[in-house]
Amino acid sequence: MNSVARFGVGMQLGPQGLLWTATNMRGGILGRKRTPETPPHDPKLMVARVAHEYKAFLAALRLPDSASAGLALVGPGPIDQTDGSFKSTQTPETWSRFDMAKPLIAELEIPVRVENDANSAALGEFWSRQISRARTFACIYMNLGIGAGVVVDGALYRGASSNATELGHISLDPTGVSCFCGNHGCVERYAAPDAILGQAHQNEELKEQLAAAAGTLDTMGQFDYLARLAVRGNDTAATLIDVSATRLTHAALTLTNLFDLDHIVLAGPGFAVAGATFVSRLRSQLVASAFARHSHTITVELSSNPRDSAAIGAAALMLQSSVSPHRGTSKP
């Protein structure tokens, strides 16, 4: 099969703007582009912007429209694939009632779908690493929030509405901090970047350093800054990153036991700087506590491209759907 004959395009919605990627049939990246402008609140303007940027992206890479397997728009969950909408608190509320896919299908005349960022990252890592379908695989994804995607027998596990394996909303403390999801004590409220930055601001030294950097950095930029301090030997910052890793590991252990996982990859911007700390903590916990630890080993790795993993996976999603329709791309 000619790996360049078909390509998929992924576009990730995030606090850092829009990230575009195009990949070929072998998972090779054909091109990448980031547009830092904040997405418009008006969904119709967003659709117009996506259509324009899609055409410009292909033109810049000299990729023919006829070879496109389609476009996947990915962002934080929950999503609704039945009406093509994003319903996350991290995206404009006006988007929750608007079908993003339908007008883009009409304008671009290609397949278009919406997808959860963690699911996209999971499929992209599974496909690009050429992991055997015999493995039970998971990708733990951290950006502003925390999620996961699980691949079983080569297909994404989707649940009833493609919003399965919401790792960030496993409760660590049923009487703990309330969460927007309606639960209490969710791991996201204790381990996600916002939560860790909140603890960092309680330390005067870190508070001053973060305040000095805050003028040019968004939440993820500040989390990167804190992680760099940890990597460079700041004990207080290192303790906070370890707190995040420890709390995330508790939820990951539950996910591992539920699905009997044997391969886990950590992906997403939250792991871009101090990912090694999270990998080390999770490996140790699974060796000591995974229910099936005496039956098989569990591989834990860091994504080779954690910041772009969801966008790369989105492109892979369209390619997989063109090769094996309905396998891991939508509910049968």
Rank of each mutant, 00 (worst) to 15 (best):
R6Q: 14
R6G: 04
F7D: 13
Q12Y: 05
P15Q: 14
W20P: 02
T23E: 00
R34Y: 02
P36G: 00
P43R: 02
M46V: 02
R49W: 15
A51N: 03
H52V: 09
K55W: 11
F57H: 02
G70I: 10
G75R: 10
P76V: 05
D80I: 05
S85G: 15
K87D: 03
S88Y: 12
T89A: 09
F98D: 05
M100I: 14
A106L: 08
L108W: 11
I110E: 12
N116K: 07
L123D: 05
G124Y: 07
F126M: 06
Q130D: 10
C139F: 01
Y141W: 05
D153E: 10
A155E: 15
G159A: 13
H169F: 05
C179R: 09
C181N: 12
G182T: 10
C186G: 02
R189P: 00
A192R: 09
A192P: 07
L197K: 09
H201F: 02
H201W: 01
N203Q: 06
K207E: 14
M220Q: 14
A227T: 10
R228I: 05
N234T: 01
D235I: 11
T236K: 11
D242T: 13
V243F: 03
T249N: 04
T249D: 12
H250W: 04
L253F: 07
T254S: 08
F259H: 10
F271W: 07
L282A: 12
L282T: 07
R283A: 03
S289D: 15
A292K: 08
R293Q: 15
L302T: 03
S309W: 00
I312S: 03
L317T: 10
H326N: 06
G328F: 12
K331E: 05
